[in-house]
Amino acid sequence: MSILIYAEHDNTELKSETAKLVHAAQQLGSEINVLVAGYQCAEVAQAAAQIAGVNQVLVADNAVYTHQMAENIASLVSELAVDYSHILAAATTTGKNFMPRVAALNDVAQISDIIAVESADTFVRPIYAGNAIATVQSSDALKVLTVRASAFDAAELDNDAPVQNIDLVHDNTLASFVDAELTVSERPELTAADVIISGGRGMQNGDNFALLNGIADKLGAAIGASRAAVDAGFVPNDMQVGQTGKIVAPNLYIAVGISGAIQHLAGMKDSKIIVAINKDEEAPIFQIADYGLVGDLFDILPELEAAL
């Protein structure tokens, strides 16, 4: 088994998903390479070389990979694929974007969002918003897998794997990058945070999300939201937790003014401890909460901030 892991990064920082994917890959085999595709991403490659279990880091450092456009990355990965039995990428918006393209170019299936490895060809993945868990077996010679990073622990960082530059340039005329509006925040990223406090429609407006700030500061928490809060324009889309947003599994998840629709639960029900704050004692979120507090969030949030 030889495994290629696509590194999750933004050209400057290696994201926490990658070490978790290495851990997943170790359950498949021991020959593990990491591909860093980007532009001026040498630091990312150095960080990837530190992950225990990595044999080699391959770096495709070229301006055509600056924005990791699916068209370029898929054709690069697809060319490299001939040397591997498995290709893994995190089930982030980057991995979800280019990996199915790789699978189709290589005429194999993709298995999305795996949460466990049973064997080199058998994997476990949630379907129906996590209301059912499927075990599937692939007979393809090349397995293309996206991985739900939150389901795996991170590999240690005590390695010094060799870094090798690869000189493959895959450009295209089909698609080009125009611009990006990235959310800048001092807080931890949702998918990497130990504590998350999320607001829903009950927050009533975007200004009221400030009530979560003081608590998040004290807990070192990331701030998330339900779809209803994003749709209503209270907060940006990258804060959405759920089936079709970010999937998180922090130690502590505090849901404030969120009813607990199955699509929201799909994104957070694997959190270790769940707290629900809601004025409706019948709200479904209480059924999965370890600690439910019934009451008006506008009274409770200031009290909670003071008590921490």
Partner: peptide, 15 residues
């Protein structure tokens, strides 16, 4: 809609 915010791309047609 991407994990970090929003990104705009231009595609030639058909797309």
């Amino acid at each position: 809609e991407i994990d970090g915010g929003l990104q705009t791309v231009k595609l030639s047609l058909p797309a």
